[in-house]
Simulated assay, not measured.
Amino acid sequence: MSADQYSTGPASVVAVASSAGGVQGLIALLGAWGPELPVPVLVVQHLDPHHRTVLADVLSRRTELPVKLAEDGERAVPGTVHLAPPDRHLLVGPGGVLTLTATEAVHFVRPSADLLFRSVADTYGPGGIACVLTGTGVDGAAGAEAVGGRGGTVIAQDPRSADFPGMPQAAVDTGAVGFVLPLEQIAEFVRDLVEAKRQG
């Protein structure tokens, strides 16, 4: 695919962050999307850094979208879910090229949602969609501000419906979140948003 297919524009990427309780949240979100989502999905789920993850296999059984661990230097592919591997930050740059780094943990976590979201803001501007799901701590809040500040769309799971409300509440508290929704409504909302933006 040519680089111009990844240029900044309406609904160019969906980035998702989750932590505690996040596996079930991701299953619900990704499982509600059909196989034809026309943008890449980038996911940071906080994982045990000392163990090989089977998350890609688990999610693959629950969604029609292809799910894989992100690889350094590959392009983000529309309709594919790219997961940050354990103990590696995931960033996206020009042309949709993914980078994995082992730089310092942010808020004691690696991968960091803040770093992913900031790279989405820098690369896609108003074409970035960021979703903050269940989790403890504040990871994702500063990144949500970055996405919102560049004209992107920020969605948080309603903290009242989250198993662990810390992460979505921290994002909401920044004032950058445009939409606060129960988990079961986020998938349809994102899909409709992507389609509406692409149709102009």
Rank of each mutant, 00 (worst) to 15 (best):
A3N: 15
D57G: 13
P182L: 09
D122H: 11
P66N: 01
P35K: 13
E104R: 13
G135C: 04
Q5S: 15
P86H: 10
G128T: 02
R62E: 08
V132L: 09
S60T: 06
P165D: 03
P94T: 11
V41W: 03
S2V: 13
A176M: 07
D192G: 10
L98K: 02
H50Y: 14
Q24W: 09
R191A: 13
V120C: 15
Q185V: 08
V154Y: 02
H107G: 10
P165G: 02
P165E: 01
P85T: 08
D4K: 14
A162C: 07
G166Q: 01
F117D: 00
P35Y: 07
P10G: 12
G73A: 05
V44L: 07
T123Y: 06
A144S: 12
P40H: 06
F179W: 13
R75D: 02
E195R: 13
A141C: 08
Q45W: 01
A130T: 04
S12H: 11
G73K: 05
S119I: 09
G21F: 01
A162N: 00
V154N: 01
T123W: 06
G178K: 10
H46A: 06
A146N: 00
P165Q: 02
A162W: 04
H50G: 15
K68L: 12
I186P: 08
V81N: 10
T101H: 11
P66V: 02
T101C: 10
E64D: 14
A28V: 10
F164K: 08
L42M: 02
S112C: 10
P66W: 05
H50P: 04
V13W: 05
P111V: 09
L91S: 13
T134F: 05
C131L: 15
A105T: 13
M1K: 15
V16C: 05
V14Y: 04
V92A: 02
H50N: 15
K68F: 07
Q169P: 00
Q5Y: 14
R110S: 05
R150Y: 03
R88Y: 12
G21E: 01
D158P: 02
V109M: 09
G34H: 01
A176K: 01
P126L: 06
P66Q: 01
F189I: 08
H51D: 10
M1H: 15
A187P: 06
I155F: 03
V92H: 05
T136Q: 09
V39M: 04
A20S: 11
V106L: 10
D163A: 15
R61S: 13
T8D: 15
S112V: 03
H51C: 12
V23T: 12
V106R: 11
G135D: 00
A130D: 06
H89D: 03
V190C: 04
A156V: 03
L181K: 08
P126W: 07
L133D: 02
R191F: 10
L193E: 11
D122C: 11
Q45K: 05
L59P: 00
H107L: 14
F108D: 14
V97I: 11
G152N: 01
S112P: 12
S2F: 14
A170Q: 00
F189Q: 08
E195G: 12
A11C: 09
V67G: 03
V177A: 05
R110D: 07
A32H: 04
Q169G: 00
S18A: 15
V132R: 04
H50K: 14
Q199N: 14
G93L: 06
S18T: 14
F108N: 14
K197D: 15
A70S: 06
P49Q: 04
P49T: 03
